[in-house]
Design a protein around this nucleic acid. Structure first.
Lengths: 117, 117
DNA sequence: CAGTATCCAAACCGATACTG
DNA sequence: CAGTATCGGTTTGGATACTG
């Protein structure tokens, strides 16, 4: 339990998209629904546990919708809710800022930027 | 050291503003330079250690400028760099999104929103 | 294929006491 | 006033093995 308060909207928003994976997942879902396995392949390095855990949190935050198809083998699709789409839109300028400055950020932090997108 | 790569600009950006305090600090510096003590008072709950530590990280990321005035008693002012100002601008839509949805976010997470701003 | 259960390591954050 | 040092708790993230 973390008894805190939100000082402003930005504070709350960062609490929602913070962490290692959420922004990435949001980004991947931008173009439409994806199955669990597709998401896992698009996020190289994520563990089984984190993928599910983070998706559940985003579902609880109502930015991601989870749909189960009762087939064999089982199929589950994740997509953005209307709220999630708005969030994604609100993140575009931040993504642009990061894109422009990624090399410098990566250099200062000893991280290799990836050339994708 | 955390040997990872950035999958996209958003990934890098979240790495820069993530965590409990950075977005808040950025926000406070929006209107001009502030002294250490002023910042501490504007961020109720932050510890001495976190305030300095986070400011140093932001300085290393070149989004905050630190200026020392050699007086007695000592005076230090923090302000946004040009890069920090751009980042702040890029965060505006995200802040708006958070503002609009703060109540719902807070409710779902058992957090009290603060009425300021 | 999708998801769960454990166990463990690292990062994050904060309280406190202290220095120039 | 601004900053450092230390310590420890909580949270987060991840490897692995397993279930329906």
């Amino acid at each position: 339990m973390k008894p805190r308060t939100y000082a402003c909207g930005l504070d709350a928003a960062v609490d929602v998209i913070g962490g290692r994976w959420k922004a990435l997942l949001l980004w991947q879902l931008h173009d439409g629904p994806l199955r669990t396995g597709e998401l896992r392949r698009k996020l190289p390095g994520i563990s089984e546990k984190m993928l599910i855990q983070v998706l559940r949190e985003m579902e609880a935050d109502e930015i991601v919708h989870r749909e189960v198809f009762h087939e064999v083998p089982p199929r589950v699709e994740y997509s953005l809710t209307a709220l999630g789409q708005k969030l994604n839109t609100a993140l575009l300028p931040l993504g642009d800022w990061g894109e422009e400055n990624m090399r410098a950020i990566a250099r200062r932090r000893g991280v290799e930027p990836a050339p994708r997108h």
